[in-house]
């Protein structure tokens, strides 16, 4: 079995109102020097295969087809 982590983040230039709100809240808590905050998503997946190349190809297809909306989001894949 292969464990994988997919990280989905908003593309540069896409407004992230949730990130902005978090940025403001961190400032309100007294954390100084906070630059931009961007919110994203993390998916931990288990794949029933030992073939890393196949796992990577499958994960890429999963990202393109469902996990990310490539109109507004980027994704990255890492295998444990």
């Amino acid at each position: 079995m292969i464990k994988a982590r997919v990280t989905v983040t908003l593309k540069n230039g896409v407004l992230d109102p949730q990130g902005k709100a978090i940025e403001g809240a961190l400032g309100a808590l007294g954390f100084d020097g906070i630059g931009h905050v961007r919110q994203g998503k993390v998916f931990d997946l288990e794949l029933q295969t030992a073939d890393k190349a196949k796992a990577e190809a499958d994960l890429k297809a999963m990202c393109e087809k469902l996990l990310a909306n490539t109109v507004i989001e980027n994704y990255s894949i890492s295998l444990a």
Binding site: V14, L15, P17, Q18, A21, N69, V71, I72
Partner: peptide
């Protein structure tokens, strides 16, 4: 419709949250 690709663009969280 935008998620299916039938229409262009995307619909995101309201700016006011």
């Amino acid at each position: 419709l935008v998620e299916s690709g039938l229409l262009p663009g995307a619909l995101m969280r309201n700016a006011s949250l």
